[in-house]
Design a protein around this nucleic acid. Sequence first.
DNA 1: AGCACGATTAACT
DNA 2: GTTAATCGTGCTC
Length: 199
Amino acid sequence: MSRLNRGFFSQPTLNCARALLGKVLVRAGSDSVPRIAGLIVETEAYVTHEDLACHARVGRTRRNAVMWGPPGHAYVYFIYGMHWCLNFVTEAEGTAAAVLIRGVFPVEGLEILRDNRRGHPDAELANGPAKLTQAFKIDGSLNGLDLCDPESPIFVEDAPPISDLMVRTGPRIGLNRVPEPWKSLPWRFWVEGEQGNWE
DNA sequence: AGCACGATTAACT
DNA sequence: GTTAATCGTGCTC
């Protein structure tokens, strides 16, 4: 299937976070290197500077600048002194919003993913926001990358939508000092596996 | 220049 | 259930 276009990321952020479930996160391969791919199974929405859980709550800064830019770009940030997290920028330029990718289910390039996550069982290759960036070798050098550029090494492929029957929602993870109501809003989306085959 | 803290993970008890 | 690891960021002095 084809690469998601800018229109997809221009949807309202909550729609985008929901619609990304089942889409395919891809790191492009080459003649000699197989490509890596995983089905997106968990996301979180961070919805403008008014969302007090969003990095943009403090206004535009060097760190969060990409979120204020046009949709369809990668916002990659460093956290806890050691981890990288991948987001997709949503909403029109001038509005700071993004979807955090929290988990993918590996479907291609398993050997590379295992190598990038040596010492971990297959079930834990990419079932967390910082695990998937390790598995896909995503770091700050990719911050600002245009996912809709046909040349970009990281992109998202379209795939059939996931049924509501398999989608769960709940509060976002790790918002320790965030005030209500933001802390409890059900802005986390994930796919519930019928046989526990997911995440 | 110094400080508190974080959209996490892994390894504990 | 708890906690160390580890450092960029944004704020205050």
